[in-house]
Computed example of a mutant assay.
Amino acid sequence: MAQQHLDPTDPLAGPVSGDALAGYLRAQATEFLRALRRHRETGGEGSPAARTKPRPGENSSPAAVDAARALRRSARRISGTLHTFRPLLDPDWSEAMRPELAWLSGTLAREHAYAARQERLLLALHRLSGSSAFPAQSAMPGRAAGSLGTTEPGAGPRDRSGGIPERGQLTVGAAKAGALLERQLTLARTRAHSAALQALGSSRFHAVADSVAVLASEVPLAPAATTADLRPPAAAAEERLGDAVAALPLITAGHPYNAEALVHGLSADTAPQPQDAPWHQVRLLLRLHRYAREVLYGEEAPVDVHLLHAGRALHRHRDAAEAASAAASAARTPRIAPATAYALGVLHADQRHEVEAARFAFQQSWAKETVHAP
């Protein structure tokens, strides 16, 4: 990644002291506590509703969902900042806090992930079978409607009107595949919801919340932080990101439907796609880079449009890769009908196409980022 040279009018032209780090961590800790209070007030942990076992498919209130998302966001930012600037923080405290915050954000994220995966896969099944999308939903942007009657990637509709063609009811295979996915992912979502409620009521979570409450008023900086400059650790995070992008398998990933990307698809091997791991790593490193920029710039952090687009592409990549894995897992269900397995296979291939499209979008965004970096 090209290094950016700061001009004299840039707020980062001079050293950035440890006070900026302390202020950022205090602000994120305060946001965490506010989100926790909202979550409890809207039926989260501590209320009678939170102690009730959820029914399959049960949705939390929008306010509770927003509060849980804010909790995750603050926990991720605190954890990421502790990682990037760990030489400037009390080592025992930061090393104890980071895994606890990662546990919390990961636990809270699972229910939303399963719900989004279910919606994504069912919409894709409707699109691929040529039926109408769900009410108040439209086809996913940037993709043409195909047919479950062909395995040709990206096959377009016969209808030239620009809309999704009406082809009657879903095929038997697609309908059964959708029912199987909905059953499996609803069960996973329900379990994730229960796990999140149990976590928010646990002594482990209360210990995390107590530590964050202390952080809101007192940041345990290392003695060297008072005279340190925050720019070198932030630059190191940017360099790690650039190195990870440079190591991406861009040549193989450039083929829209390469055989290596599918070699583990519907086989008995349940290991993740080997191509996906470095892309997931880049997504995490990009997040750390963004958080480091927030620390340096404070509330006036400029929005880097190219980094924003690159991050969105990597989120799409993660979502499509996990959706493809869910389709492949469902296809390995014992004793399912051949038509159902076929529909799931086409769905898996469709989501792997989405993975390739997201990789291409990331490459385009990253190329613009490096060109614009002076």
Rank of each mutant, 00 (worst) to 15 (best):
L82C: 14
L12F: 07
L104K: 00
A64S: 08
T333I: 11
R37G: 08
A116W: 07
P91C: 06
A327T: 02
Q118S: 13
R76V: 00
E31W: 10
F360I: 05
G311S: 09
A68C: 08
G18A: 04
T370M: 14
L88N: 00
R160P: 11
A174W: 07
A109Q: 09
P153C: 02
Y257D: 15
L148V: 05
R86I: 05
G154I: 04
E299G: 08
S105W: 05
L6V: 14
T9Y: 04
S47N: 00
L128R: 06
G201A: 10
P87K: 03
E238N: 05
G142A: 05
Q184H: 04
Y342W: 14
A64T: 01
H126A: 12
R287W: 00
L128M: 02
V16F: 06
L266P: 06
A133C: 09
A145S: 11
P249R: 00
L170I: 05
P99M: 07
A328H: 04
A20H: 14
A373D: 04
S131H: 06
L347P: 12
T151H: 12
H315L: 14
S202H: 13
V208K: 03
S365V: 03
L36N: 10
F134A: 15
S61Q: 03
H83E: 15
A96H: 02
G43Q: 08
A228S: 00
P233M: 04
Y342I: 06
G265S: 13
L125N: 08
A67K: 01
S105G: 12
D350R: 07
Q363L: 13
A13K: 01
V305Q: 11
M97W: 15
E218Q: 15
S194R: 12
K368S: 15
A331F: 01
F134M: 09
L262I: 11
A339I: 00
A326M: 10
A244M: 14
A253G: 10
G345E: 02
R183M: 07
H39L: 15
A216I: 07
H306M: 05
M97P: 09
R359F: 12
R127C: 11
A207R: 13
K176H: 11
R352Y: 03
G156F: 08
A133E: 14
A102N: 11
Q351I: 07
S79R: 01
G23E: 03
P232T: 06
S203P: 03
A268N: 14
E299A: 10
H372M: 15
S325T: 11
A177D: 08
R204C: 10
R189W: 13
S202M: 04
R332N: 07
Q273S: 13
T171C: 10
P153K: 13
R335H: 12
H255I: 13
T151Q: 13
E354A: 15
R26F: 02
H309S: 08
A75M: 00
A301P: 01
E354N: 11
G173F: 04
A96C: 01
L230I: 06
A199N: 06
E260V: 09
R86M: 09
G44P: 08
V355R: 13
A29C: 06
R98M: 03
P153V: 01
A13N: 04
A67C: 09
A96P: 02
R98F: 09
A301W: 09
R72D: 00
A222G: 07
D19F: 13
Q363C: 12
A292N: 04
R77D: 01
A367H: 11
R359P: 07
S105N: 03
R127E: 15
A136V: 13
L187A: 06
P165R: 10
A331P: 02
V219W: 02
L187F: 08
A213I: 02
